[in-house]
């Protein structure tokens, strides 16, 4: 039953990705051309509110819906994996014009060629898992 909540959060997310045009290839292309504030406004305003929210959660020890302390794990310390992985991700983001969240939204919007992108994103993930022990982290 708890899972239904996540379905609704996902629906809200999908509607937001589609309606804010963050799922549009054109908006991603335009973002990397530095021609519009739109995408920077979306990410920037989400970020400012997110920082405020997490500071408030920590300061006032706000509890989750289940009465537990909200914990946000720190990311593992490293530089190389974030820089190398980030650049590889960015190359793909610039090429396919979609990141993992919007990919799902686009299936629902009937953009079926996105399935090719998703299948290969799964393959890319699998390939990472295969060769991860050999990569600098």
């Amino acid at each position: 039953m708890r899972q239904i909540i996540f379905l609704f959060i996902g629906i809200l997310f999908g509607i937001t990705m589609y309606k804010s045009e963050a799922a549009s290839w054109f908006r991603i292309y335009e973002m990397f051309q530095f021609k519009s504030f739109h995408m920077y406004g979306i990410i920037g305003s989400a970020l400012i509110l997110g920082i405020l929210m997490i500071q408030l959660i920590k300061r006032f020890k706000i509890k989750s819906a289940y009465g537990e302390t909200i914990e946000i794990p720190d990311k593992a310390k490293s530089i190389s994996r974030y820089v190398y992985g980030g650049i590889i991700f960015g190359l793909g983001w610039g090429l396919a014009g979609a990141c993992p969240g919007p990919m799902f939204t686009l299936i629902g919007a009937g953009v079926f060629p996105i399935l090719v992108v998703i299948i290969f994103a799964v393959l890319g993930t699998w390939f990472y898992g295969k060769i991860a022990p050999k990569l600098p982290h």
Binding site: G86, W93, V117, I119, G124, T125
Partner: peptide
Amino acid sequence: FGGFLVGFGARYAG
């Protein structure tokens, strides 16, 4: 190839 790089890079970068 775009999809492959997104999948690979996202997991590498965590």
